[in-house]
Design a protein around this nucleic acid. Structure first.
Lengths: 188, 188
DNA sequence: AAGTAGGTGGACCGGTCGGTCTAATCTGCT
DNA sequence: AGCAGATTAGACCGACCGGTCCACCTACTT
C-alpha cells in the first residue's frame, strides 16, 4: 500500500492540472483517475462530495502555490517596475512552456462554475483574495500609494492579459501590459 | 413554417446566451434545442459541423454585437476619462442585471476551448481583435499616445475585472479598475 | 492469530452526451 | 394540381458522464 494520503495527493494534483488545462466540465473523472492511476473507490473515499469537492480543493491548492510563487517573484525584484514585469514574465513563461495550455489555474473553472457551485466559487474567490493580498503588500513595499486599488488594477490586467495570450497563442500582450503597468509605479 | 432562416437565428441566439452563462462543455445541445424550441434535425441542417460550429458562430455573433455596443458607449462620451468609465459601466450593469451570470460572452468559451478547437479559438481571437480595434480607435480620438498599447491594457484590465467581478459577485472591481485606468488618459 | 479500520479495485447504474438518419411536412415554382 | 427542394420532427445510437456499491486486501492492534 502506498504511504498515508499519498493517493489523495496524487489525485488532487492530477485533477488540478487537468482542470487548469481543460476546465471543469471538460475534465472527466475517468481521465483524472486514469492519469493518477487510482480507482473510483479511492476517489469517493478521499473526496466524498465528488467532483465538486475535488475542484474546490484543486483551486485552493493551485491558489496557495501560485500565491507563493508570486510573492517569491515580487520579493526578488529590486523595485516596483521590475517587480511588475517579473509577475508578467512568470505567467508568460508558463504559457509558452506549456504550448499555451497552462494559463491561470483558477480562471477557467471560476467562469464555468461560479454561478452554479457555491463551494467552488468560494474557493476561487479565496485564491484571488490571496493573490490580491500578495500584490498589494508588494506594491506598498515599493512605495505605491493607494496600493489596494492599484493592486486590483494589476491583478485584473494580469488576468485579462493571460487570457488574451492564451486565445492568441502569443504571450506578447502580457509583456505589453506589464510594461504599461510598470509606469504607474515610482522608480527605485 | 417560420420565416426563412428564422429557426437558425433563434437557435444561434439561444446558444450564444447559454454559452455565455455556462460555457461550452457546460451547455448541452439538448438544452439549446429545448430553449429554442427546435428539433435536432434543424440544428444539424443549419449547422452541419455541430456544436463546434454553433459555438464558433455564437462567439462571432456576440463579438460583433458587443463591439457595436462598445463603440456606441465610447462615442457618446465627451472625453477619454468618461469613455473608459462608460465602458466599465456597461459591463458592470450587465453583470448586476443578470445576477452575475452574464459576463464576457467570449471569455468562458475561449478559455475552455482555445487549446482544443482551432475554429472556436479563431472566432474568439477575431472577437477580441474587433474590440481592441474599437477601443484603440476611441483612444486615438481622445488624443491618447501609443493608443494601441494602451488599448491592450484597457482591454486586458476590463476582461480581468469582469471575471473577478463574476467570481466575487460584486461589480466593484470594474469601477475601481476603470477609475484608475481613466487617469492614464488626458482630460478633455 | 484473530480482529478491525483504512484504503483499494472495479463492476455496475441510470442518465445524458453529441451525432446520425429517415420520414413527414412545408413552401414556392411551374 | 403537382412536383422539388428546403426544412422540420424526433426516434435512435454508442459512448461516456458522475456516482454508488461492495468485495477485498493490507497494516496495525490486541
Amino acid at each position: 500500500m502506498a504511504g498515508r494520503g499519498e493517493t489523495r495527493e496524487r489525485v488532487l494534483r492530477t485533477a488540478a492540472e487537468l482542470f487548469q488545462r481543460q476546465g471543469y466540465h471538460g475534465t472527466g473523472l475517468t481521465q483524472v483517475l486514469a492519469e493518477s492511476r487510482a480507482p473510483k473507490g479511492s476517489l469517493y473515499f478521499h473526496f466524498p462530495d465528488g467532483k465538486e469537492q475535488l475542484a474546490a480543493e484543486s483551486v485552493a491548492l493551485s491558489g496557495r502555490e501560485l500565491a507563493q510563487a508570486l510573492r517569491a517573484a515580487a520579493g526578488e525584484a529590486s523595485d516596483g517596475r521590475a517587480g511588475i514585469v517579473a509577475l508578467g514574465e512568470y505567467f508568460a513563461r508558463a504559457l509558452e512552456e506549456s504550448d499555451f495550455s497552462k494559463g491561470c489555474p483558477v480562471a477557467t473553472v471560476a467562469l464555468e462554475t461560479s454561478a452554479a457551485s457555491e463551494p467552488i466559487r468560494t474557493a476561487c474567490e479565496g485564491a484571488y483574495g490571496d493573490w490580491l493580498d500578495g500584490i498589494t503588500e508588494a506594491l506598498r513595499g515599493w512605495g505605491v500609494p493607494d496600493s489596494r486599488d492599484v493592486g486590483e488594477l494589476v491583478l485584473s490586467s494580469l488576468q485579462g492579459a493571460v487570457m488574451l495570450a492564451r486565445v492568441r497563442r502569443d504571450a506578447g500582450v502580457i509583456r505589453t501590459v506589464t510594461a504599461r503597468l510598470a509606469e504607474l509605479v515610482p522608480r527605485a
